[in-house]
């Protein structure tokens, strides 16, 4: 069956039709999956908050805050128990990572001491920088109890106290940067709330 030579009009019409159908089909799938995607993201956030604020049952109050010298804002979820601010879960980020940017959640108590951390989104190298996701590793555990407001977190190579992940100094440095940003944002929000 030999195909007939097509006219330009036919070409344009078929292509347009296919593109149109594709657009419609995609829009349909998009509408269907929109809620699950949002829910999945929300769930991830809630799970991260529960992880970094263990045992917390009270109310969360969300505020956005941009730390001085930054471009993007940080979301601070202030944790209130019995009307008292008892800490916060801060959605923070760093742009200094090995592959661009990663987002982490940092739990803080009322004084700004670190309670826990959880990685939300990253694209670090598997096997090296990606170890930031291993919650039981020494690297993640060592942050618990540190207070970056008293002493800025730095890896040992830069004269600080944090043991870097072997062969992933850049990711470790970036992690410290993100935690420092979280505490700076928390203190800024706290001040604003007091005024």
């Amino acid at each position: 069956m030999a195909k007939k030579e097509s006219t330009l009009l036919q070409l344009v019409v078929t292509l347009t039709l296919i593109a149109l159908l594709a657009g419609v089909a995609l829009a349909a799938v998009y509408t269907v999956t929109k809620t699950p995607i949002e829910m999945a993201q929300q769930q991830k956030k809630t799970a991260a908050i529960n992880q970094v604020l263990p045992g917390f049952q009270g109310e969360l109050k969300d505020c956005e805050c941009t730390v001085e010298g930054d471009k993007d804002p940080v979301t601070v979820h202030l944790a209130y128990q019995d009307g008292q601010c008892c800490g916060a879960a801060v959605e923070t980020y760093t742009n200094k990572a090995f592959s661009g940017r990663f987002d982490i959640m940092v739990g803080l108590d009322a004084e700004g001491k670190v309670l826990g951390t959880a990685v939300l989104k990253h694209s670090e190298t598997p096997g090296l920088g990606a170890k930031i996701t291993d919650t039981e590793s020494h690297f993640i555990q060592q942050f618990v109890g540190m207070n970056p407001a008293e002493k800025e977190l730095k890896v040992k190579k830069d004269g600080g106290e944090v043991d870097a992940i072997t062969a992933a100094t850049i990711s470790s440095r970036a992690f410290c940067d993100a935690v420092n940003r979280a505490v700076a944002a928390f203190n800024q929000v706290k001040e604003e709330n007091h005024e």
Binding site: L15, L26, V29, Y30, I37
Partner: peptide, 17 residues
């Protein structure tokens, strides 16, 4: 176009589920 449509679909589905 046809392939890209299905790829975008599976992309959205994986993100959601």
């Amino acid at each position: 176009v046809i392939i890209a449509t299905f790829v975008s679909m599976i992309d959205l589905l994986i993100q959601g589920y």
